[in-house]
Amino acid sequence: MTATAPAPPADPPAGAPRPRRRARYVVAALLCVGAIVALLVVGLRGNVVYFRTVSEAVAARPTDGGQRFRLGGDVVASSVSELPDGSMRFRVTDGRATVTVVHRGEEPALFRHDVGEGQAVPVVCEGRWGSRGTFASDRILINHGNEYEPERKNFES
């Protein structure tokens, strides 16, 4: 939406077409170009692939130098447990490789519910390799699929 203020009532009779606030539109066009460049630079810098699969992450572990990355896979439903210090521990798998994740931080709203349903919950965890081959996560995103179906009625509710 271009925010155009109401046009001035009449232009000076003496002149050429009114300048049409052209400076404003030059600035606006340049700002748009700047925004596009910024988005592409920030957004796609090494991020065109949003997360690494478990196998890729395991393969890259010796060489990645402890940098932050996103790890994507399915939570093994039966593997979720809470540690005494309040962090959460679970295993994430891509079918070929499996990694233990220790998560410290907010728990997404749907996480407990989905895990409780016994489904393989697809997640993306942000963090880095920690000690003894575990992945230290501080943020869990739920990577929802493109399938939708009506809620089954729970008998107990």
Binding site: T2, P17, P19, R20, R21, R22, Y25, V26, A28, A29, C32, V33, A35, I36, L39, L40, G43
Partner: peptide, 17 residues
Amino acid sequence: AVLFFLYLGYLSLRRLP
């Protein structure tokens, strides 16, 4: 988001003399 700014830029371009 790039799409949004591409066409916003297009609308600004239309106003240039």
